[in-house]
Each structure stands twice: as structure tokens, then as C-alpha cells.
């Protein structure tokens, strides 16, 4: 039998009207923003399924832009996110599309940064404000953002997993879930590690010390009242 917290039942506190189309959309976009690393110039939102058909009535568009601006799903500025984006000089557009055999509430973010580099992140809003990120820059991943999550891109050489788990062990952080995605054997891999405790910038710095790590991002869960 599934277990619930009282705050799953009376909660979350959110901006309406829909946990999947508004709160979930904001979470997806904030997560995409963190993965992209910020300094955003332009975002194209490719909307699929129910997101494509009903985004205007549900405020999905405003929620997505709010997330890109790092607003939380309960931030009252969410409604006016377009104005805030304009102030920050972030351009955006929405394109209705077909992303294939994916969840009906799916969005692909094409994020162009000020330095010209592009990040592509795809995820779904799977109900009740919960999300699933499943693609980063063409690499298949899978995580929900419910737990602190470390994402790496690294050279596919022996010892990377050992190095990261050693750093976490030294800080007494337990790993709850871990997946390695080998993109090209010996060349490139991605790893997603979910931990039981918040991961600090200091830990990230230590992990970065290993030269095989090309990219590392930490996503700590969004806590109400932050």
C-alpha cells in the first residue's frame, strides 16, 4: 500500500489552476533552468499533447516562463512571469509539436544561453505536480527531482563512480538511487545520483576535481517556504 504524508493530502501550496498543467510545468522549467546553468538569452518551449492543446487556459505558458526565472510553483509572481521575463531580457516562444510516444504533458526546452551554447532538456508533468526529466542534450536520463540529484557528464573511464561515491561517503551522504547511461563506450557517459541528504556546493567542487568530469549539476528539491 502506498504511503502518504499529510502534506500530500492537504497540500501542496501552489498557484492554480492545475497541479499537472501549472505547478508541474513550473517545476519542470525551474529544473531545466538549473540544468542549463543559467545566463539564458532565449527559450523555445516545444509543447506536446495536452500541454500543446490546453496550455493557454491552464496558464502552462506563464508557469513555464516562471520556472525559467527560477520561480517556485507557489510564487505569486508566476501569473505575471511574462513581464518579469521581459525585464530580465529573456526571450521565449511556444511551439505546439509532436514529441512522439511520450506522456501527454511533455515539454522540450531548447535553451540558448548568452554565450551561444544550447541546452535541450525534455520532461513530463506526471500528475499532482510531480515531474520526470528524461532527456538532457540527447542523453536518456530519468529522475523526478523529489530527492537531491547529482547529474554528471563525464569521460567513460574507470574510477569515476568510485571517486564520486568516495566524496559522498566522506561527507556521510547516502546514495538512494543511481543510474549510469553510457552514451559512447569509452568516450562519454552520464550519471544520475539521487541522495538522501542535501548536497552542498563544496561537495560538488570536490567531485569536479576529477578531470574526467566534464559537467556536474546539483538539483536540491524545492522546499515550500524557501
Amino acid at each position: 500500500m502506498k504511503q502518504y504524508s499529510i502534506f500530500d493530502i492537504v497540500g501542496p501550496i501552489m498557484i492554480g489552476p492545475s497541479s499537472s498543467h501549472t505547478a508541474g510545468a513550473a517545476r519542470l522549467a525551474k529544473t531545466a533552468r538549473i540544468i542549463s546553468g543559467g545566463n539564458i538569452k532565449n527559450v523555445t518551449f516545444l509543447l506536446h499533447g495536452s500541454f500543446a492543446k490546453t496550455y493557454k487556459g491552464h496558464g502552462t505558458d506563464r508557469a513555464l516562463v516562471a520556472g525559467i526565472l527560477k520561480m517556485n510553483p507557489w510564487d505569486e509572481r508566476l501569473k505575471d512571469s511574462f513581464t518579469w521575463a521581459e525585464k530580465k531580457g529573456i526571450e521565449f516562444e511556444f511551439i505546439e509539436t509532436d514529441l512522439g510516444n511520450v506522456h501527454p504533458n511533455t515539454v522540450k526546452f531548447v535553451i540558448t544561453k548568452k554565450d551561444g551554447s544550447i541546452s535541450e532538456i525534455t520532461g513530463s508533468s506526471v500528475g499532482g505536480g510531480n515531474i520526470l526529466i528524461f532527456d538532457i542534450d540527447g542523453t536518456q536520463v530519468e529522475f523526478t527531482g523529489d530527492n537531491p540529484t547529482i547529474i554528471t557528464k563525464h569521460r567513460d573511464v574507470p574510477g569515476v563512480i568510485w571517486h564520486i561515491s568516495k566524496v559522498l561517503f566522506e561527507k556521510n551522504i547516502n546514495i538512494g538511487n543511481m543510474k549510469v547511461f553510457q552514451k559512447k563506450k569509452g568516450l562519454e557517459a552520464t550519471m544520475v545520483i539521487e541522495t538522501d541528504a542535501i548536497v552542498s556546493e563544496e561537495i560538488i567542487k570536490k567531485i569536479k576535481d576529477l578531470s574526467a568530469i566534464e559537467y556536474i549539476k546539483i538539483l536540491n528539491p524545492m522546499m515550500e517556504g524557501e
Binding site: V10, I13, G16, P17, S18, W74, G129
Partner: peptide, 17 residues
């Protein structure tokens, strides 16, 4: 308030808030 993108508590859902 919910339909106007205001702040609510899902209880248990936004539709029944």
C-alpha cells in the same frame, strides 16, 4: 482564486481546493 492563477492549497487537489 485557483482559476485566476492565485495561491491555493490543493486539498486534496486543486480542483477541489
Amino acid at each position: 482564486v485557483n482559476a485566476a492563477m492565485g495561491k491555493i492549497v490543493a486539498s486534496p487537489t486543486a480542483g477541489s481546493c
